[in-house]
Amino acid sequence: MGTPSGRSTAGRIGVHLAVLFFVAVWTIPTLGILVSSLRDKDQIIASGWWSAFTGSAQTEAGRLAPASAQQEKDGKFVIAGNLFETPGEREVTAFGTRVQAPSDYEAGSVAELKDGVTLQVNADGSYVLASPKAFEGDRGQRVYYAVTAPPRFTTENYETVLFSEGIGRSFINSLTVTVPATIIPIMVAAFAAYALAWMRFPGRALIIAVIIGLLVVPLQMALIPLLQLYNGVGAFFGVPSKTYLGIWLAHTGFGLPFAIYLLRSYMAGLPRELMESARMDGASDFEIFIKIVLPLSLPVLASFAIFQFLWVWNDLLVAMVFLGSGADQLVLTGKLNALLGSRGGDWEILTTSAFVTIIVPLIVFFSLQRYFVRGLLAGSVKGG
Rank of each mutant, 00 (worst) to 15 (best):
T176V: 15
M187H: 02
L196F: 12
Y158A: 08
A195D: 00
S164P: 00
S164I: 00
L162K: 09
I172C: 04
V179C: 11
A192M: 15
I167Q: 01
T182A: 09
S170R: 04
V177H: 04
I183H: 08
F201Q: 05
L162Y: 06
R200H: 14
T160L: 08
L175G: 13
N173K: 04
L162D: 05
R200T: 15
F163K: 12
P180L: 08
T160Y: 07
V179D: 11
E159Y: 06
S174G: 02
S164Q: 14
R200A: 14
A181R: 10
R169H: 05
E159P: 00
I172E: 08
A195I: 01
P180K: 09
A193G: 14
E165H: 08
S174R: 04
T178V: 07
F201P: 07
F171C: 01
V161G: 02
F191L: 15
G168T: 08
T176P: 03
V177S: 02
R200G: 10
Y158R: 08
T178F: 02
A195G: 06
A197T: 10
I184H: 01
N173Y: 04
V161K: 03
E159T: 14
A193W: 11
I167G: 00
A193E: 10
A189G: 13
A181G: 13
S170M: 09
V161E: 02
A195V: 10
T176Y: 12
A190G: 04
A197K: 10
R169F: 02
E159I: 11
G166I: 01
S170I: 02
F191N: 12
P180T: 09
I184P: 00
S164W: 03
G168H: 07
T176M: 11
M187C: 14
A195P: 00
A192N: 09
